[in-house]
Amino acid sequence: MQLPVELIPFKTADATVDAVKSGDIDLVFVAIDPVRSADISYTPAYIQIEGAYIVKTSSPIKANEEVDTVGTEIVVGKGSAYDLYLTREIKHASLLRAASSQAVVDDFMLGKGNVAAGVKQQLESDAKRYEGLRMLPGRFMVINQAIGIPKARPNYEATNTYLSNVISELKQSGFVAESMKRHNIQGAKVAD
């Protein structure tokens, strides 16, 4: 049986997750997160990307371990995987939420916060648009991307099993790695 497919882009991960939870869409390609797991069932991850920090070159902060201190304000994309992660993990710094992941560095350069957090590739791209920025070495988290299905959907377990098998086959066959190479995707790797 063939079904029509409609790809619907969203500006933020938060909006995508809301749409799948409300039943407006059938599945999402999104980062796995325990908060989202209350409403979403995930396939195994197909790719991994990294969450990283960027600071102004004048910043005294030199390492990821120095970020979670009183007085540090971290700009994050509202509802993103790294927002959810940092909300759980940050104990002393404050989080300032930008409207989207794409707006993080723009807000940061307009004077919001003293550290920007995001997907490493996005931050590296943004660093080319502005002068006076530097990436902190390493990463503060690994982001596992997967397909998510709403748990409210009838027989979601069977759908998840089917899609999990498809993801496993696509990874094992080399399709995911070849697709990333063909589309020149840098900084991501096929998930284990």
Score class of each variant (00 low, 15 high):
S59R: 06
P60M: 08
K62M: 10
A63D: 08
E65V: 03
V67T: 07
D68L: 09
V70M: 05
T72H: 12
T72W: 15
E73R: 04
E73V: 04
I74A: 08
I74F: 01
I74M: 07
G77D: 03
G79M: 00
A81W: 07
D83N: 07
D83T: 08
L84Q: 10
L86P: 00
T87H: 14
T87R: 15
E89S: 00
I90G: 02
I90D: 05
K91H: 09
H92Q: 14
H92I: 05
H92S: 15
L95S: 06
L96R: 13
A98P: 00
A99E: 15
A99Y: 14
S101T: 05
S101F: 06
S101K: 05
A103V: 03
V104R: 02
D106R: 02
D107V: 01
M109V: 10
L110T: 07
G111F: 13
G111N: 08
K112D: 14
G113W: 13
G113A: 12
N114T: 11
K120W: 07
Q121D: 14
L123N: 04
L123W: 00
D126A: 12
A127N: 02
G132D: 09
L133V: 01
M135T: 01
R139P: 04
R139I: 15
F140A: 04
M141S: 15
I143Y: 03
I143F: 02
I143T: 06
Q145H: 11
A146F: 05
A146G: 04
P150G: 04
P150V: 06
P150H: 04
K151L: 09
K151C: 11
A152S: 08
A152M: 02
P154K: 12
P154S: 15
Y156T: 01
Y156S: 06
Y156P: 02
Y156A: 05
E157L: 15
A158Y: 03
T159D: 13
Y162C: 03
V166A: 12
I167T: 05
I167H: 01
E169C: 08
E169L: 11
E169H: 08
Q172A: 15
S173C: 07
S173Q: 15
G174Y: 15
V176N: 14
E178K: 11
E178V: 05
S179G: 02
M180V: 02
M180G: 06
